[in-house]
Structures are given as C-alpha cells and as structure tokens.
C-alpha cells in the first residue's frame, strides 16, 4: 500500500524556520528523498540557517531517514547554521540513543526549548 505523500509544514518566526513532519511514518524512499530535497532547499535559501525540525507527528522512521537528517545537519553546519530537533517521542528517541545520534543532533523536548537554545545570528 502506498504511503501518504511526504509533507512538511514550514513556518517562519523571525530568522528561524520551523519544520514539522506531517507524515507519521518516515520510511518510504521516495518520501525520504522528497523530504531531503525540501529541507536542502530551505538550507540553501538561508544565509545562516536556523532550523527547528519537530517530530511531534512522527511515530516511525528508518535508518534512511536518519541518513537524510545527517546530510541536512552537515549542510547546515557548512553554512555555520543551527539545526535543532524537538518533540521526539520516547520510542523514536530510543533510535537516536541506539545510534548515538543524540550526540550529533541537538535535541530538545519542545519547539519552545529549541527556540530558546538558538544563538543570535
């Protein structure tokens, strides 16, 4: 059965772009590629990207999705930007713990916490 198409809800508050997954499952290769392209486009548009990605809606992901997040993180770093992840449910957070990607990403309980952690440009 086909997965729902990948959609990101993108909002801007000041110089910060907030991205919210609207798909519950980030598994399908085409969806992951689409998400990667959309996030890359955001990074490319910003001079020094400040991006918060909320996982509030996500209840499943795969290693391919993690790979895409890592690629985005690397692109943000290349532009001296800041990437924050938030609202990751305990089951998904365990995936970050197992892969030790909690050491690579800056993860916050809520979008508000993530916003508060951002340094001024």
């Amino acid at each position: 059965m086909a997965q729902e198409p990948a959609r990101l809800k993108i909002t801007r508050t000041g110089d910060t772009v907030q991205v919210e997954f609207t798909s519950r499952k980030i598994l399908d290769e085409a969806n992951i590629a689409d998400i990667g392209e959309q996030l890359s486009a955001i990074v490319e548009k910003e001079e020094r990207p400040k991006i918060i990605i909320s996982f509030a809606a996500v209840d499943h992901l795969s290693s391919a999705a993690l790979g895409t997040l890592i690629t985005i993180n690397n692109k943000v770093k290349q532009k001296s930007g800041q990437l924050r992840l938030s609202d990751i449910n305990p089951q998904i957070y365990e995936v970050f713990l197992i892969t030790k990607l909690n050491k690579l990403f800056r993860i916050y309980p809520t979008v508000k916490d993530a916003q508060d952690s951002l340094q001024p440009a």
Binding site: S62, S63, L66, G67, T68, I70, T71, N73, N74, V95, I98, T99, K100, L101, K103, L104
Partner: peptide, 21 residues
C-alpha cells in the same frame, strides 16, 4: 561501527545496528 565518534556523520550504515538492537 556507525556509533563511534568519527563515523557519526556517515549518512548510511545503521540498518544492521538497528536490527541487532
């Protein structure tokens, strides 16, 4: 090993780690 610090930024190679975990 994708969990050692020098490999954390690799964009692939975590599938088997997750299966085993």
């Amino acid at each position: 090993d994708p969990t050692i610090e020098e490999n954390l930024e690799m964009s692939h190679g975590r599938g088997i780690l997750l299966m085993r975990a």
